Computed example of a mutant assay.
Amino acid sequence: MASRLAAAVTDPDGNGELATEADSPSGRNVTDTWTTQLVLGHTQDMSVIDGEAEGLAID
């Protein structure tokens, strides 16, 4: 069974989710604090979205 981390980035209706392997560098960084940041855009014009992560077992 693969272990993945999911970070929900939701709109007002609660839609949206991202995932990464738990043993990847990103997954290991997330499990240190269980917080996430998603950065969209280019260097001078970007949006930063903060979130919380949770571990999920994938069948």
Rank of each mutant, 00 (worst) to 15 (best):
Q44Y: 02
A53L: 01
G27F: 13
S47H: 07
A8C: 04
D32I: 10
G16V: 02
S3G: 12
T33Q: 06
A7T: 12
D13V: 06
T33W: 01
E21M: 10
V48W: 09
M46K: 14
S24H: 06
L18V: 09
L38K: 05
A53M: 14
G41W: 13
R4P: 02
V30D: 06
D11H: 01
T20P: 02
G27A: 08
R28D: 03
V39R: 01
V30C: 13
A53G: 05
T35W: 04
A8M: 03
E52H: 09
Q44T: 11
E54K: 07
I49K: 07
P25G: 05
N29Y: 02
D50N: 14
A6S: 08
A6I: 06
G41T: 10
E54D: 06
L40W: 08
D32C: 07
A2K: 09
G55H: 15
A7L: 04
G16H: 00
D59H: 00
A57K: 08
A6M: 09
E54R: 14
M1H: 11
D23E: 13
M46C: 10
R4H: 04
L40A: 09
G51D: 07
S3K: 15
L18A: 13
E52K: 15
I58L: 01
A7Y: 01
A7P: 02
M1S: 08
A8I: 07
S47T: 11
S24Q: 10
W34F: 12
G51T: 11
D11L: 06
T10M: 13
R4W: 07
D50R: 15
Q44C: 03
A8T: 04
L5M: 07
D32E: 13
